[in-house]
Design a protein around this nucleic acid. Structure first.
Lengths: 254, 254
DNA sequence: CTGCCTTCATTACTCAGACAAATAAAGATG
DNA sequence: CATCTTTATTTGTCTGAGTAATGAAGGCAG
């Protein structure tokens, strides 16, 4: 028996990506196909046996992948009927993984606009709350992150990490755990597209001053100013992102 | 061998609850213990073998439960170290299941306040967007839901369903899928507490007029009025909920 | 013909036991 | 003392069997 080349299952680990087990990679694969429209809502996936041996994995691994997708609202499985893709209304669109899968394939234009619409609603308010509630330690953390951002630019990984730290500290300062999860997930997904952006055009505009304005307003405890500064920052980020992503991307008009 | 009484595994299905498989019930069990603080972040769960035979289930079922929890960011498992509860910052607090688990055990007072803070930020804006973008069909749907709410009251299951339909239609009208998932999940969790509320006190105030004002503003396409009316509605809902939930609930001060 | 009940076939669900892979910690080596 | 190697433990994966749920087809009365 030639057996399978399973022992050499080197999981596709591009670079800074969290390395996944088999069930993780399969969940990601199918998840991407679902959010990209390759598997339409209502469509039934192949049965466990067929699917698992088409993918050359055990049923166990495949089933765990399906559990993950079901936990994120992408599929629903019942005996006799099989596993079918859920309607889009049931998808947990704000789940970090689902978001990353969406942005993995294509940003999606209208979805991107919706996402920034959400940011525009939430983040300024979060900044305003942070201005009212921030502790000294949080101000210090934001200051350090801002300094790191200034030193390394957004063109470097360190700079992007500093950007993330800045926003994380700000959200932390808002004192609302729901705002933290919401915006951190969204922010991570958007940041992922920023990398694409950097490839196409060097960098349209220096984002540091925008960040500095937000920081100073929060540090000063000026909620109104923080709100305004953050609103401006989101607007600018949206402009940068849309300008960088060229195509009309009309491959599937949902 | 007497075997086990597994054949009589009647899954605990209280009433209107979605009936769960074994892996689902286990995930829910552990999930509730995590969000309620019985399993602290950083703590490692029992090994798969020990845990699975303590629960009298197969390792497969237990593992699928862990996959679900991992998909929701509650745990992280690696070989040799085991499965450990993730820090709260990694939890997907806006996941519908996680939310329901949180509200299953204890509303949580500060968490409840944070949740309504989020609603207060998002829902008025969603109403404003709905006022600008709603189609005739969506207005009709909202009108019907409102009529049903008026007929049956919130004291009846039909009335609560109508309430959900009303808000769902409104969110749909906002044209932003992220707002839909965000608010529908949050709304469902809050609605779940409404049932508790009804048990303790009959009903403090008639919510119909609040809803009617929102509806009329949206139907008229008046974004500002819709924003204001919805803000008022959320405020009232918060007052009702906090007034109904009595205790200081000091059992675990996070 | 219609409506309800029973039977049946299909599918996911659960179980059991074995082996593989990863990795933190202990131990050996320089 | 530092670094490499070994080891033990835990999750990860595979296989094959049997169970439970359920939509659909068929039977039976009205």
């Amino acid at each position: 028996m030639p057996s399978r080349a399973r022992t050499t299952t080197i999981i596709d680990t591009p670079e800074g990506r969290k390395l996944l087990r088999i069930h993780g990679t399969i969940a990601r694969d199918i998840g991407i196909r679902i959010v990209s429209g390759q598997f339409q809502p209502g469509e039934v996936l192949n049965g466990e046996v067929e699917a698992s041996d088409r993918l050359r994995v055990s049923r166990t691994a495949y089933r765990e992948a399906v559990r993950i997708l079901a936990a994120k609202g992408l599929v629903e499985s019942r005996p006799k009927t099989g596993t079918r893709v859920s309607p889009r209304a049931k998808w947990h669109l704000l789940d970090p993984d689902v978001l990353s899968w969406i942005f993995e394939f294509e940003p999606g234009d209208d979805l991107l606009a919706s996402l920034f619409e959400l940011r525009k609603i939430v983040e300024p308010e979060a900044a305003a709350l942070a201005a009212q509630r921030r502790t000294e330690a949080q101000v210090t953390a934001m200051a350090e992150a801002l300094a790191d951002m200034t030193e390394h630019t957004l063109a470097s990984p360190e700079g992007r990490a500093a950007d993330q730290h800045f926003h994380a500290a700000l959200l932390e300062a808002s004192g609302n755990p729901f705002l933290v999860t919401l915006t951190s997930g969204v922010g991570a997904a958007v940041a992922w597209t920023t990398i694409f952006k950097q490839r196409h055009m060097p960098l349209s505009r220096d984002p540091i001053p925008d960040h500095r304005r937000v920081f100073e307003a929060v540090a000063a405890g000026n909620a109104k100013a923080a709100h305004k500064a953050m609103a401006n920052l989101v607007d600018m980020a949206f402009l940068d992102t849309t300008r960088a992503l060229p195509g009309p991307a009309d491959r599937n008009a949902t």
